[in-house]
Design a protein around this nucleic acid. Structure first.
Length: 109
DNA sequence: GTTGAGCGTT
């Protein structure tokens, strides 16, 4: 992975600009987004920020965790990937030696 | 004008 995502629990008054301006000086902010409700179009009360390296995310976490933002103490936590990995199922093809038919796996070209 | 233990529209 080339980026570290961070989940933020913040005030409803906080917007993307406030989030970006609040977490920008701590590192290279690749993405700063406040989750808003699709129906009401207002903030859900949390957002996400993505940094280019881990130390930047750690610095932002240590500097902005449990700090005041828009009159509200926010929480900074590592976020889970939105794209969860498909399932790293172990291939049992090589386990059954002898019964393995020539399965075409790994044809990248 | 509302708020808090958790996770998002590409």
């Amino acid at each position: 992975l080339c980026a570290y995502q961070t989940c933020l629990r913040l005030s409803r008054l906080t917007t993307d600009e406030k989030l970006k301006s609040a977490f920008a000086p701590f590192g290279q902010l690749l993405e700063a987004k406040v989750i808003t409700d699709r129906v009401s179009g207002r903030s859900k009360g949390f957002g996400f920020v993505r940094y280019a390296s881990l130390e930047e995310a750690e610095t932002a976490r240590q500097e902005m965790n449990a700090k005041f933002l828009d009159g509200w103490v926010i929480f900074v936590d590592p976020a889970k990937q939105r794209e969860q990995k498909p399932a790293p199922q172990p291939d049992t093809a090589s386990s059954h030696a002898g019964f393995t038919i020539n399965k075409t796996v790994g044809w990248c070209g």
